[in-house]
Design a protein around this nucleic acid. Structure first.
Lengths: 109, 109
DNA sequence: ACCAGTACATAGCAACACCGAATACCGATG
DNA sequence: CATCGGTATTCGGTGTTGCTATGTACTGGT
């Protein structure tokens, strides 16, 4: 992805991670790997962890520490009801943006 | 729009403004008014001006000072070739994001 | 003993949108 | 003529975010 992506990801990456968690609980390392797999090639490791700390502090997710056979214990995050409400709000804003941009793209060129 | 919008706009607002300028030259006050009209209700006045200064400094736009009958002179911005290339890159990143998020939205709920 | 893979944390940095205030120019109203 | 509202731009300070770089810790294989 281009260099612009860094700024464009702000706020959106959070929505992406919450959307992932809305499907199933997951832990940081797993999420990072999934993102890279989906083409978010240069998402930094630390970025996801910092994001998870933030959403936890805001009470959008519940956390459970689960031992792993292959390394240190995992912190498994799951979306709670407050997080679900927040995610819906995210989708509303996202829809608004896609509509405006779609219009601009059609009219623009 | 919700409070999340502030963060989600980062990087995207720039694309929006450049997309506007790709259609026709415009000046700050005009762009701000247009944005409010389109539902970006709480875009701060200063935000657009600061953005325009940035894109000018990066050489994405050309500027012309035009006298106004109703106030101080306007700074009319128009997208140059470098800005056009940058805008295309923006659309590519945007497309990538919309695809990923569309998938997530379908799968998620 | 060493190294790679798994898993998490964090301090410092740059960029961006927001807030608030200031400046400047004009026409109309009192 | 003084003032107010609409037009138009600028700027310093703030908070949030993602990136970089580094450090820690646990496991299994060589």
């Amino acid at each position: 992805m281009g260099k612009q992506a860094t700024e464009m990801l702000k706020g959106i990456l959070e929505g992406i991670v919450l959307a992932i968690l809305s499907g199933r609980p997951a832990y940081g390392y797993e999420i990072t790997a999934w993102l890279r797999d989906q083409g978010f090639s240069d998402i930094a490791e630390g970025t996801v962890y910092a994001l998870l700390v933030r959403v936890e502090r805001r009470g959008l997710v519940d956390v459970e520490k689960v031992p792993s056979e292959k390394g240190p214990p995992r912190k498994v995050y799951s979306l709670n009801s407050q997080g679900r409400a927040y995610l819906e709000e995210f989708w509303r804003t996202w829809s608004f943006l896609t509509e405006r941009l779609e219009q601009l793209r059609e009219g623009g060129e």
